[in-house]
Design a protein around this nucleic acid. Structure first.
Lengths: 140, 140
DNA sequence: ATTTAAATATGTAATTATTACAAATACATA
DNA sequence: TATGTATTTGTAATAATTACATATTTAAAT
């Protein structure tokens, strides 16, 4: 089996009615941990679902995010990235190649509460720099 | 005086040669703590500098960010926001009104280092939710 | 002061991400 | 099977950002 959990059930648990397209998008996110853009997801799924529309991918991702099934990552100024792993972790963006890597925490960092009467629904930790592959390793 | 520091000197200290346009953009950022978009900055300065081009605003902001004189905030999926305060602090985005607020820390949060040989140049903490003005205060 | 070269700014056109919207299709239920 | 609702699709609009060639300004050299 590709996936340890049943994708339809996962969607239903988030109040999302499964469909061929929704299952495909979620499956793609669960099996590709590259934090893809909507366009990348569309490009990967279109060959298998020839009738797929880019609007559907956007609609689907928007629904997933609204239902808390997917995390919307805004670290990349070139466009939105999406993560099927909604657990608490950070993200590192390589500003050279655009690669986006997970940064898992031994213990989640303690972030101060937001004051001023604002109601926080989510906190995210973003790192930017140059990834090991692009040369971050060697250069001092 | 509007500004405690001389804007030209501030630019020079970051290796940026001052110009009428650059001073105006930096001044705007230093006196307006709303984390404006390029478009907002252009709209605010255009009346005073009639020849100002939007491309210049983009070029200028890009230069400021590259030289570390301004922070590029990517929390808002609708577009890039900019902050003339480069000190360590977080940001809260109201997903209703788009308002972007500073979150100052008593002590900077301890963020785990990024492993994997990646070279980190910057870390940012983003919060999302509903601001006090939009109703975050009342609603449980 | 004048010339010259380099840096900066401008305007227009392209690119790209995302959304709006109306029509078509699929789905679930009576 | 009929009917209403949800979902998907395609096209067109919107908006942010970049590319690029030209014009202007600045600084240095003569």
């Amino acid at each position: 089996m590709k996936n340890p959990v049943n994708t339809s059930d996962l969607l239903r648990r988030h109040g999302i009615r499964p469909s061929v397209q929704r299952i495909a998008v979620m499956d793609y996110l669960l099996t590709h941990r590259t934090h893809p853009t909507a366009d990348e997801i569309y490009g990967a799924l279109a060959p298998q679902i020839p009738t797929l529309s880019k609007t559907t991918v956007y609609n689907t991702l928007s629904l997933f995010v609204a239902q808390g099934a997917v995390t919307h990552i805004t670290i990349d100024p070139r466009g939105s990235r999406f993560d099927g792993d909604t657990s608490v972790h950070g993200h590192f963006l390589c500003t050279e190649c655009g690669g986006l890597y997970d940064v898992f925490f031994d213990a989640p960092p303690v972030l101060p509460q937001v004051g001023g009467g604002h109601k926080t629904t989510q906190a995210q930790v973003y790192y930017k720099g140059v990834c090991a592959h692009c040369g971050g390793k060697d250069e001092k």
